[in-house]
Design a protein around this nucleic acid. Structure first.
Length: 491
RNA sequence: CGGGAUGUAGCGCAGCCUGGUAGCGUGCUUCGUUCGGGACGAAGAGGCCGCUGGUUCGAAUCCAGUCAUCCCGACCA
């Protein structure tokens, strides 16, 4: 198994040093559990943002922005929502500092205590629904289809780079609808958007389904999710879409007059993905040589490394490289000509490799003479000499090929690590020795789910959306079950 | 918050047991030779040894406290 697939294992420091620091992905900052996303890492996030944002617009959504600080009282309005987030909220209590009387630094000015504390948003449902109340009076005001790109903060007990940082970047969609069915359709539509993004852009196969009540979002009536399988056999929730019913509308009194002139509460959804996707990307494709980026996620798709000793050689190589670069740019391929004279070619090869650049071209005097170029693909690590003629079309084709290959590889891994088990012994054995997704019968009770979690650390990742009905017996209790659900140990 | 460990150069670490004023690898700077897979040599720069206090002629080293980080739990996108 690849050693560098993880954001933390015994090889974590290697990954951290080679990929995170050298590759400028991110590094821990002094702020507890937060991350500095360095330029290369942020470029990947920007790519994700651009694609997702385009899909949100295609499906009729607009972006907006709501405040970072939320009055504490907002949190007491939806009971289960509070319960879910109360324990991990950072609270603002004062609004001023003053010079310390002993002359050493500054202290909190107790005179500047806030009458009502403010909460740094762990998610924005409350402040958004409080705002929506004033926007909705008639069914003509619906639907409201809004997305927000923002940071949120959750005071997590334990953090992990990308997968669970205290502060993270995300998008949160919050929509309001006139009918239950319309809201459910929206919830399901956004789940499909996430699945499409994961599979067709991140080259990461996902399962789609709904969460068991235990795993449901605080305040939701139904939580849909996409789950991916990482290279160590653990599952990762990659995106969620919640049908909130009328819970938040009732809590925040968001009412409208419907076509029958009757007062009704609006139906709500919320959905989000976060910088956790960056962790998912790393952990799905990386290998012992570092990061592997699917072409559609790569800030740089092709890097050209010149090889030369003398200035006149560099001039010839450079001319050819720029020619190729221009042709590729015209095809919409992002290219970097790495003409730094401060590093040797070997160093550059290694560096672009652990940064995951899908295709590397090397051009030297030999190539100039032969009209060739050396091409190395990151996914297979294969090197081949290509004729220069029509190189841009060959590369465009190859990029598609690499994208597909990475997906296939991940899908094969996922399938190889998907197990159907029927007995408790098998269940435990599979978890301990093989990991992966386990399709098993469950009697449908939260108690059984809890017991399984306590004994094996495995949770129900999802109830498959397209799951076939199949009579069986619960893997723990032996009670009747009508369909298999997916268990796994998860991040 | 419970259990375990660790704080020494940008990064990774040794030194601590047995106190005497700090070292290795890598990285960084300069010069020269190199450049088709992380080049080599020489000369350099860089440290309130996490913080506070105590013991001592003298503390990275011993003692107490404190802060921070990491790992295992509870919590979680």
């Amino acid at each position: 198994m690849a050693k560098n697939f993880s954001t933390r294992d015994e090889n974590y420091s290697q990954w951290y040093n080679d990929l995170v620091i050298k590759a400028d992905l991110a590094e821990n900052s002094a702020v507890r559990g937060c991350m500095v996303i360095k330029p290369y890492g942020y470029a990947i996030w920007e790519k994700m943002q651009a694609i997702l944002d385009g899909k949100f617009k295609e499906t009729g959504h607009s972006n907006a922005y709501f405040p970072l600080l939320i009055p504490k009282s907002f949190f007491s309005k939806e009971a289960s929502h509070v319960e879910g987030f109360a324990k991990e909220c950072a609270v603002v209590t004062h609004y001023r500092l003053k010079n310390s009387p002993d002359g050493k630094g500054v202290i909190v000015d107790e005179d500047a205590k806030l009458e009502e504390e403010l909460i740094i948003r762990p998610t924005s449902e409350t402040i958004i629904w409080d705002t929506y109340r004033t926007w909705v009076q008639s069914y003509r005001d619906l639907p409201i289809l809004i997305n927000q790109w923002a940071n949120v903060f959750r005071w997590e007990m334990r953090t992990r780079l990308f997968l669970r940082t205290a502060e993270f970047l995300w998008q949160e969609g919050h929509t309001a609808h006139a009918t239950r069915l319309e809201a459910i359709a929206e919830t399901e539509q956004m789940l499909r958007v996430y699945a499409d993004f994961a599979e067709n852009y991140m080259a990461m196969p996902v399962l789609q389904g709904i969460k068991s009540p235990n795993e449901r979002f605080a305040g939701a009536e139904e939580t849909y999710c996409v789950e991916a399988l990482m290279q160590d056999g653990k599952a990762l929730q990659a995106g969620t879409s919640h049908f909130l019913g009328q819970n938040f509308a009732k809590a925040f009194d968001v009412k409208f007059l419907n076509k029958e002139n009757k007062l009704d509460y609006v139906w709500a959804t919320s959905w989000g993905v976060s910088t956790r996707l960056m962790g998912a990307l790393v952990m799905t494709h990386s290998d012992d040589h570092g990061l592997v980026l699917p072409p559609k996620m790569a800030p740089i798709q092709v890097v050209i490394v010149p090889i030369s000793r003398k200035p006149e050689e560099f001039a010839a190589v450079s001319e050819k490289a720029l020619e190729i670069k221009k042709a590729l740019l015209a095809k919409g391929v992002s290219v970097k000509f790495d003409d730094r004279d401060t590093y040797t070619p070997g160093y550059k090869f290694a560096e672009h490799e652990f940064r995951g650049v899908p295709i590397r071209l090397a051009i030297g005097p030999r190539d100039i003479q032969n009209g060739t170029v050396e091409l190395a693909r990151r996914d297979t690590m294969e090197k081949e000499t290509y004729q220069m003629t029509d190189i841009e079309n060959k590369i465009v084709h190859l990029l598609e090929n690499i994208q597909q290959n990475l997906y296939n590889k991940a899908a094969t891994f996922r399938d190889d690590n998907t197990h159907y088990v029927n007995t408790w012994a098998e269940f435990v054995e599979t978890l301990d020795n093989r990991g992966g997704f386990i399709y098993a019968h469950w009697d449908g009770t939260p108690e059984t789910e809890q017991k399984i979690k306590e004994e094996t650390k495995a949770t129900i990742r999802l109830i498959p959306i397209d799951g076939k009905k199949e009579a069986g017996k619960c893997v723990l209790t032996g009670k009747p079950s009508e369909r298999r659900v997916v268990f796994a140990r998860a991040y």
